[in-house]
């Protein structure tokens, strides 16, 4: 079966980040050979004085394939893990969705995109979770992380939000590499310009310091923009540009 696992508000200023916790949750699944996790995406939620986030208010989510007979066990393990590994003072929330059982998908996505624009509350999150069949749980503090956790799952489901955790692993000693080679080395599915133009596999790209992918159209995507030198027509985007995802 296919699942989404999303978490929010697991950290404090001095602890490891929510991304690392998500990575450990994915590892728990794979170490037991219960399933295979895909990339982790980071989803930016609303920054607002009424929301008690740690420093940036983002949720982390990954999709995974899991053997059906291990689902319940994994769900319990993930809940226990979040309760014990989240930082003191945090308000962790966990959302797990079985995609084959998902109902009212549109409502989930609407909730998710609203969480980027307006302040939502726990009651609204639980209401949407009940309608969609999402497993939503709190694991300490005020538990308000359930709002972001549910939103993170909806945003990942949309396929059009978030940037991938970590940097793409690309080896190009000269800094120049073809689009096709980037895809082959890193596993990124698409290389396209910020204006939406697909970059052919034989086109050269200049790699900047940051080589990070985003989720667009349901595919992991490396965005590039026109480069002004003669060596390559394209170059990777800056961190500043990518922060909008």
């Amino acid at each position: 079966m296919r699942i989404l696992v999303s978490i929010d508000d697991t950290d404090n200023l001095e602890s490891r980040g929510t991304g690392e916790i998500a990575s450990l949750l994915a590892k728990l699944l794979e170490e037991r050979e219960w399933g295979k996790a895909q990339v982790i995406t980071r989803h930016q939620l609303l920054v607002h004085p009424d929301i008690p986030y740690t420093s940036h208010n983002s949720a982390m989510c990954f999709a995974a394939e899991i053997k059906e007979q291990h689902f319940e066990e994994y769900l319990q393990l993930a809940r226990q893990f979040l309760a014990t590994e989240s930082a003191p003072g945090s308000d962790p929330g966990l959302c797990v969705i079985v995609l084959e059982q998902l109902k009212n998908e549109l409502e989930l996505k609407e909730f998710a995109f609203k969480a980027k624009k307006i302040v939502l509350n726990k009651e609204e999150a639980y209401e949407v979770a009940a309608k969609t069949g999402a497993y939503l749980s709190e694991h300490g503090g005020e538990g308000i992380g359930v709002i972001g956790a549910l939103a993170g799952a909806g945003l990942r489901l949309s396929g059009n939000d978030g940037r991938l955790r970590g940097r793409l692993k690309v080896n190009a000693p000269t800094g120049l590499i073809t689009s096709g080679e980037i895809k082959q080395q890193s596993g990124v599915e698409v290389v396209q310009s910020t204006e939406g133009q697909m970059i052919a596999d034989d086109e050269l790209i200049y790699l900047g310091e940051t080589v990070k992918a985003v989720m667009l159209g349901g595919r992991t995507t490396l965005l590039v923009f026109p480069n002004e030198t003669e060596d390559a027509k394209w170059q990777t985007c800056t961190k500043n540009y990518l922060k909008r995802f």
């Binding site: 920054v47 986030y53 740690t54 420093s55 940036h56 208010n57 955790r165 940051t210 800056t238 500043n240």
Partner: peptide, 19 residues
């Protein structure tokens, strides 16, 4: 994953900044 400034040592990249 939370860095936004190309210059590493920037308040924008600091763990103690709250957006």
């Amino acid at each position: 994953d939370e860095l936004v400034s190309e210059e590493e040592r920037s308040c924008y990249n600091c763990r103690y900044r709250r957006w």
